[in-house]
Design a protein around this nucleic acid. Sequence first.
DNA 1: CATTATTCCTATCCGCTAGATAGGTAAGAC
DNA 2: GTCTTACCTATCTAGCGGATAGGAATAATG
Lengths: 132, 132
Amino acid sequence: MYVSARTDYAVRAMLAVAAEHPHLVKAATLAAAQDIPLSFLQGILLDLRRSGLLHSHRGVDGGYALARAATEITVGDVVRAVGGALTTVRGMPTGTTAYRGAAIGLRDVWVAVEEAIEGVVDHRTLAQLNNI
Amino acid sequence: MYVSARTDYAVRAMLAVAAEHPHLVKAATLAAAQDIPLSFLQGILLDLRRSGLLHSHRGVDGGYALARAATEITVGDVVRAVGGALTTVRGMPTGTTAYRGAAIGLRDVWVAVEEAIEGVVDHRTLAQLNNI
DNA sequence: CATTATTCCTATCCGCTAGATAGGTAAGAC
DNA sequence: GTCTTACCTATCTAGCGGATAGGAATAATG
């Protein structure tokens, strides 16, 4: 059970952007505030923009802002935006793997794990996390 | 959220061994039955033995057997045996990471995710999964 | 309108670890 | 002693984490 650096960084960056809503925040500012390698962060921000979670603007005083309200974005949305599926087993989405023999029942365990994770991340919005 | 190949293989191997309890099962038999690379599986079996989940025996008619009853081994036990901590974020155990600024609340989310996963894997025994 | 500074965007390269493989060593049964 | 099997070590490969360099778009300024 492993949460990748890419996923962790993505949620932290989204929270930092949400805290400044609706103002634009520069990638360099996010990198410094959350201690994230800038170039790596830029690739993550690109994924978040393509997934429709962020809006970007170039030029002087450019930066990133939330594409919709912080109350309408969950942690699960962010995880799926940068990682594809919420949960994977050996790189494959949970539930697509074919088990056989004594391991047939294992598939249901991984599915149950995924549902348990969904129960947490799909009910935590960025707005809730920002109200410390 | 990733389940590594190592973890998936470990649980499948344990289920295959449990199905033959209390007879010894050879590593090559496990590899063929569950379609796991033999050499990779041998390293996993070594971890499971060192963690006290398996008992091994060398020589002719050697192999592996459960160290305790299948009713007393959970999926969580196996996951922890091969992966160290049940859940990690960027390679660090959940709860040990230090967040700051707008991301302070994120730690509690990952902790909640870990507890949700524990609720599943720590209540599924090998015996339950073998009774299909 | 052209220039320029700023910023997002893209492509490429490097180190590390997991996944996977092959070969050699030690222990138990006959 | 010989065979079989677990056990250990070394090696190869692909992908993630991270760094560097440059290109493309935007807005301010003269």
